[in-house]
């Protein structure tokens, strides 16, 4: 396990009854990165986070945060002191007020940031005397985010931080997150099925589908690596699929063959033998990449 990684999983499996939620997941999140964890509903995002935080036990494989395996014991507790977490449910203790839950959480984290606490109470317009059960979902999300950001954590894990929020509230939350990460040295690992969010704030992306990692890497690198190559022929496009390495998906439409590949050079070299009229290549968006990568798993 590398010291440069904040999170690493190797061949991670998690089985619930007769369903494999994770099927050999290999995930690497570099320290200092903002990594978007993208996947469809039920792809295994929340399960991965639960295993990483020691809330669920892996059936097989390894998971480590800062090089330490998650556990329900004291070692796991020590690691959680370095982590800020917002769950997808964002439900907190209904029997406390905003001020009480802040005062409750503060003593667990020696590096708690009072300055940030005051800043976010004001920024999020939180009333300390308000009962948590009376808060709207958006305000509760902001409170959950405050409780995670003020921990002085080295790693922030957010599970669908904007789920269920209206676009304006979601934007508020994202902006707060971006602002925080810009001023603090930390790793952020956040799951979402909103591609635009990941495009907006992440520098790394990991796409999970049906419990397996399908694509991961830095966003810039992925954009460079994955290309859409369009071959136009004088007659109908050839029936045979290209044999070049890195071909993700092939689509035929009359005289046009559109291929998504992560090795453009190899594909172009092979396709010259088919004598196309023209060869064009263009970068793909994260959305296209996501949609194509989850389709190829069928």
């Amino acid at each position: 396990m590398s010291n440069d990684l904040a999170i690493e999983t190797v061949d991670l499996w998690k089985r619930y009854d007769d369903v494999d939620a994770l099927r050999g997941l290999d995930l690497q999140v570099p320290a200092g990165s903002i990594c978007g964890f993208l996947g469809r509903n039920g792809a295994g995002k929340t399960t991965t986070i639960k295993v990483l935080l020691g809330m669920a036990r892996a059936t097989k494989g390894e998971a480590r945060i800062f090089g330490v395996a998650p556990a329900a014991d004291a070692r796991g507790a020590a690691v959680r002191q370095r982590i800020g977490f917002v769950s997808d449910e964002k439900d907190l203790y209904d029997y406390m007020t905003v001020g009480e839950i802040i005062a409750f959480t503060r003593p667990f984290f020696p590096k708690w940031r009072r300055d940030l606490e005051e800043k976010y109470v004001a920024k999020f317009e939180l009333s300390l005397h308000r009962d948590i059960k009376a808060l709207s979902r958006g305000t509760r999300t902001k409170l959950a985010l405050l409780l995670a950001l003020c921990r002085g954590a080295e790693l922030l894990i957010l599970d669908e931080p904007t789920a269920g929020l209206d676009p304006a509230m979601a934007e508020d939350v994202l902006q707060a997150l971006v602002g925080h990460v810009a001023s603090e040295e930390m790793t952020v690992f956040f799951s979402s099925h909103q591609i635009s969010e990941i495009d907006q704030i992440a520098d790394h992306v990991a796409i999970i589908d049906r419990g397996r990692m399908v694509i991961s890497g830095s966003l810039d690198e992925l954009r460079d690596r994955y290309q859409r190559v369009q071959l136009v022929f004088a007659g109908d496009a050839p029936k045979a699929d290209p044999k070049a390495p890195g071909v993700v998906r092939v689509q035929r439409q009359g005289r046009v063959l559109t291929i998504l590949t992560r090795d453009r050079e190899a594909l172009v070299a092979e396709s010259r033998a088919w004598s196309p009229v023209s060869i064009d290549s263009s970068p793909v968006s994260l959305k296209e990449l996501f949609l194509e990568s989850v389709k190829t798993e069928d």
Binding site: D73, V79, S87, Y93
Partner: peptide, 17 residues
């Protein structure tokens, strides 16, 4: 059921505590 278990489990304490 109330949805607050994950917040509790994210605290740096053991389940025995």
């Amino acid at each position: 059921k109330k949805g607050s278990a994950l917040f509790t489990l994210s605290l740096p304490v053991t389940r025995k505590q």
